[in-house]
Design a binder for these strands. Structure first.
Lengths: 217, 217
DNA sequence: TTATTATTTTAGACAAAACTAAAATTATAT
DNA sequence: ATATAATTTTAGTTTTGTCTAAAATAATAA
């Protein structure tokens, strides 16, 4: 697997988490900031390598092999992010670009040992889950925001209560379907939280968090 | 600097440590296991980038800029080797290939922090010195093997005593001019050492080590 | 000094991964 | 249902770094 191939597999893997069925050429191109024609070239190549199934004009779908390769790249990315934050004291929002490079280092043994060195973490510093060595990501689950713990995160997929007041509140806070919410802190005694939405961090009460559904991956 | 460019600069840097004047196209090709014609192409490109001075049919010589870039790649390589051995418990002879990849990760901040995390080591696990952040390698010095400390290493450049017995002893141990000697252990009270020569490790007395000149880089 | 050998460079090709422009296909709207 | 729009693919280039084969230069030997 070349660096470019790995990046394509990774992008398609992420798109499959959000989309049913085949992933379109255009969607891949957009997510990778490249041209659709380049995507066609690469997708054909990956199909020959049995990393995905590709049908002209219909789109691509990862095979079991392709999904495993992609998950492994993501595993490496997230383990390196943990290293950068926990060991080198980077801030969690500074590590993405460096991890983007480190994720392509080729050595199974290295990742095995890095994982042990870091204490086999389950989540990266953004709260995203780290796939296990078989490439398995914990199944996606829909839960209440209130059920999340510190350092976890979810994507807003709906509300339990849908009063105008509540929706207006969410709107004011820039929370809508698809918004990523990260739990920065959680107070044990009253269930209140500090959450991060885009670049803002703010406090929310338990009343809010128990009325918001999030999808965790 | 691309990955290929960095590797060329690194190779030329190493060759300049062993050779006076210009480095020949052939020497570079051999050290990089590539064809002389490829070297010509790259060396012309690096000359345009002011990384080295190149004269047709004569060879190449690094500029101050090129030397700095090369030293920085070597610094990164050696710092990562320290990380792999000290933190991830790799054996010192397993780390080269992985460090070959890690040395190309682009981030000044990363190396600054890695260096601090490792306690700003002066030598890598093979005893090779780590250039400082300005790319400066400690000047090459000729000293007696006896003056080296544990984990340092040198290249045999001569003997103080030159009796037949001594030279025969060295011959038996496969030590000659150019042989790399690494100090694996040193006994404080009598100055005896355990040294590594190629794949062999063995004990030598102080009598031996104080009659052998080594060059340290 | 001239012939031979070794080294180095040039010229032309190739593979990977990207791009542009144009053609083909599918989807949408009247 | 057909015209228009959107998407996707194809064809042909470009760049980077490599290669082979042939030509040019330098070094060596007779």
């Amino acid at each position: 697997m070349t660096l470019a191939e790995e990046n394509y597999l990774k992008a398609i893997f992420h798109l499959e988490l959000e989309t049913e069925g085949e992933i379109s050429t255009n969607a891949i191109a957009e997510s990778m900031d490249t041209k659709p024609s380049s995507v066609t070239d690469m997708v054909q190549k990956l199909a020959e390598k049995k990393m995905l199934i590709y049908k002209r004009y219909k789109g691509a779908q990862l095979t079991a092999t392709g999904r495993k390769v992609a998950a492994n790249v993501i595993r490496k990315h997230r383990l390196w992010e943990v290293f950068l934050v926990e060991k080198l004291n980077f801030h969690w929002d500074e590590v993405h670009e460096i991890a983007e490079q480190l994720e392509h280092i080729q050595s199974e043994e290295l990742i095995t040992r890095l994982d042990i060195f870091l204490g086999s973490p389950d989540f990266d510093p953004h709260g995203d889950p780290i796939p296990d060595k078989h490439g398995v990501l914990k199944a996606t689950e829909k839960k209440l925001l209130a059920e999340l713990e510190k350092n976890q995160q979810g994507i807003c997929v709906g509300v339990k209560e849908s009063s105008a007041e509540f929706l207006q509140y969410l709107d004011k806070k820039n929370i809508s379907i698809g918004t990523k919410i990260s739990v920065i802190g959680k107070e044990f005694f009253d269930g209140s939280m500090i959450i991060q939405v885009e670049e803002d961090r703010f406090f929310i009460s338990h009343k809010i968090s128990e009325n918001l559904y999030v999808q965790t991956t």
